[in-house]
């Protein structure tokens, strides 16, 4: 096997750069947004965990979907849905786009393009070849699980059209619809999805069976160009739906206001 060629190494100071634009704004905003999301999720999971269903409707906070009913669940005050919380967390943690965001915004590795790192130069840098980043190589498994989760969220959207007096449609249905839609777009635009449907093939025309895979790959490739937007939109729609459901539960918004049809 070939061997690489070495160049003499030089030490550079920290945060060395000649950029005169506000390169730090984006990583800062992203760090604030992600930190906000993490704190909000912790609050929802640990302090609000029996507060996720709206009486008289089938609205359920997307944080608690799927709504597991376990006979033997021992932890009072926590929903068994928490058993599955590692799926969306793992999916997002290993997401290729999220990797860009957290490496830039939290680890400053690099904080922005052509800006040197926060730490002293690490000539032993191994990137995603070492723990914990090597786990990202299992992203496709999280994708498979997230695909199932996406179907559950779509089912939740349809269930949200069921009310005590029959079929209807409310603001809550719409917000759960957005949650399911953006989650679906986020999941389907995933790089692992693109690879699985056809990206791993070299020859798209070698036999007729691969033609369907070629078309799916083309479709996912188009979605994939907007993957970063779907990452943020799916986070936003999740939080908006959750807040709305909390407002309904606490009677800040009435069910009469919610219901359109």
């Amino acid at each position: 096997m070939a061997e690489m060629i070495t160049l003499p190494t030089v030490d550079h100071g920290e945060f060395k750069h000649s950029r005169n634009d506000r390169w730090w704004v984006r990583p800062l905003l992203q760090a604030v947004a992600i930190t906000g999301f993490i704190f909000y999720s912790l609050w929802v999971i640990f302090l609000e965990s029996d507060n996720y269903k709206v009486e008289g409707t089938h609205y359920i906070s997307p944080f608690y979907s799927p709504d597991l009913e376990l006979g033997f669940w021992p932890i009072e005050g926590f929903s068994p849905a928490l058993l599955l919380i590692w799926i969306p967390l793992g999916f997002r943690y290993t997401c290729y786009y999220a990797r860009k965001v957290y490496h830039r915004a939290f680890l400053a590795d690099p904080p922005a393009c052509a800006v040197s790192e926060l730490r002293k130069v690490n000539h032993k840098y191994k990137g995603e070849n070492k723990l914990v980043f090597i786990v990202s190589n299992l992203h496709r498994y999280f994708f498979y699980l997230a695909f199932v989760l996406m179907i559950v969220h779509i089912i939740d959207f349809f269930l949200a059209m069921k009310f005590e007096d029959g079929i209807g449609f409310g603001l809550g249905t719409l917000l759960l619809g957005f949650d399911a839609l953006f989650l679906a777009l986020y999941v389907l635009s995933c790089h692992s999805c693109k690879h699985v449907v056809g990206g791993g093939l070299d020859c798209f025309s070698c036999n007729t069976a691969v033609n369907a895979r070629y078309k799916s790959w083309k479709f996912v490739k188009k979605l994939n160009e907007n993957h970063h937007k779907f990452f943020w939109l799916s986070l936003l729609s999740l939080i908006v739906a959750d807040i709305y459901i909390k407002l309904l539960i606490n009677d800040v918004i009435s069910l009469e206001f919610d219901r359109w049809i």
């Binding site: 096997m1 070939a2 061997e3 690489m4 290729y96 786009y97 990797r99 860009k100 490496h103 830039r104 590795d109 690099p110 393009c113 052509a114 840098y125 191994k126 990137g127 995603e128 070849n129 980043f133 090597i134």
Partner: peptide, 21 residues
Amino acid sequence: PEIKNVFGSGLCNITKCCTEV
């Protein structure tokens, strides 16, 4: 095998500066 072991695909952490420039 070379892409992983010699050319070091694992060292890239997807921060996308190459695409930006």
